[in-house]
Design a protein around this nucleic acid. Structure first.
Lengths: 217, 217
DNA sequence: GTAACGATGTATCGGCGCGATACATCGCGA
DNA sequence: TCGCGATGTATCGCGCCGATACATCGTTAC
């Protein structure tokens, strides 16, 4: 899961660990909190021994005179290898049930620009199915067991149901978008993904701050 | 984190592992997927050696004649101890920054019926602050770095922003509710917390089944 | 009658990822 | 010049997950 994300970022440009973490935080911010160093560095090592990435010099310290008091070690820049790129493509195309899980789905989605349309559709549909099941679970609990649960637990269920419902709609718009050929240009940065304007008022253009009105429907 | 959840459930009634997992899944369904046995059983053992819970008999197998072919082991019913109840209260009142994290917040919230109003407010406000920061992060990325990100990453940010915004509003309603004294009755099941008039058509009566009383004992 | 199957039930194992922690350098303002 | 926050690499313990194994029970199918 981290493998895919790291390979993806290094695919764009070489980087050192710290920078990698920052980029991951913004790119995957909507999905996972912030990748920990306790995961990052071991993963980097694993990727390196597997041959997917290599250290790209940059330990300048021109003078060898400087006695390495405490094993002096500058910033280590990693870059992806040819095998790494293959591995990345493999991981991207791997559409198992794992790819529908919250975190994994987010990572896959974040690299959709590099993914084929059919793969994109399969992932989006799988994810939708999963969230739909989740949503039905909430509905059943609310319908069947409402009397046996306290008010706060019920409120939690309602919030969950609402969130799931909203994500399903979001996914449906994305799927429709993909199907109708109007996919954003795979590489282009200025592409407008924005589904049709008459969605719910959810994904509003950032220029306009979300208004106070919240009439969900 | 699991400790709190397990103690909370066992506080309501004794239970065995399997049942515990099911109840956790519905009670915390909106928060975590489904607690794994690989977490549950070790945690139960830990809680037991700590003295918070005990095994409450129920390994009937009346006859000692039956040779335990493969270390025959019936269902193990756990119950909370007096120390466990204290521990539960301690954990409930512990309002550190951890309590604002996604999963931990959900668990705390699920047991709000057993929590004092001031603690409830502190947790809700802490959570709100956290989600607000998250939301601002999305806004900044969308405003500042929109050109450098591809369409899908942007879409992910928008969706994240929307979800965060929505949760903040949800929290604000809950906070207002708590402040205005109109808290749902701590134990009552029929209390109306419902913030918005209708989220979706969630709590519909659909095929009303006659209450299948599944309490085998 | 019995075979198959899914739900119930307990348990372990490998491994991923987190949070805390340690340590070092660098630029900047007090 | 002193501290402090940002930059930067790294390890350790452990919580939790997913896969797996195994046993029992009730119901359905043949």
């Amino acid at each position: 899961m981290l493998d895919l994300a790291i390979l993806g970022l290094l695919h764009e440009s070489p980087m050192h660990g710290y920078e990698l973490r920052k980029q991951l935080s913004t790119k995957l911010g909507a999905i996972r909190a912030a990748i920990s160093y306790g995961s990052l560095y071991p993963t980097l090592r694993r990727l390196q021994t597997a041959g997917w990435i290599t250290e790209a010099g940059e330990t300048p310290a021109g003078d060898a005179d400087v006695p390495p008091l405490t094993s002096r070690r500058g910033r280590v820049v990693y870059k992806i290898t040819a095998e790494g790129k293959e591995r990345f493509q493999d991981l991207l195309a791997q559409v198992g049930p794992e790819a529908y899980e919250d975190a994994a789905f987010g990572v896959h989605f974040a690299f959709f620009s590099r993914t084929d349309v059919d793969i994109r559709l399969r992932i989006l549909e799988g994810r939708r199915r999963k969230v739909e099941e989740r949503r039905e679970g909430f509905r059943e609990v609310l319908a069947r067991a409402a009397e046996r649960l306290d008010a706060y637990t019920l409120e939690l269920q309602r919030h969950g149901l609402d969130a799931a419902d909203r994500e399903v709609r979001w996914l449906e718009e994305l799927i429709a978008n993909e199907r109708s050929g109007r996919t954003p240009q795979p590489r282009g940065a200025e592409g407008e993904l924005r589904p049709s304007p008459r969605t719910t008022d959810s994904a509003r253009p950032l220029t306009a701050r979300p208004g106070p009105d919240d009439s969900a429907q």
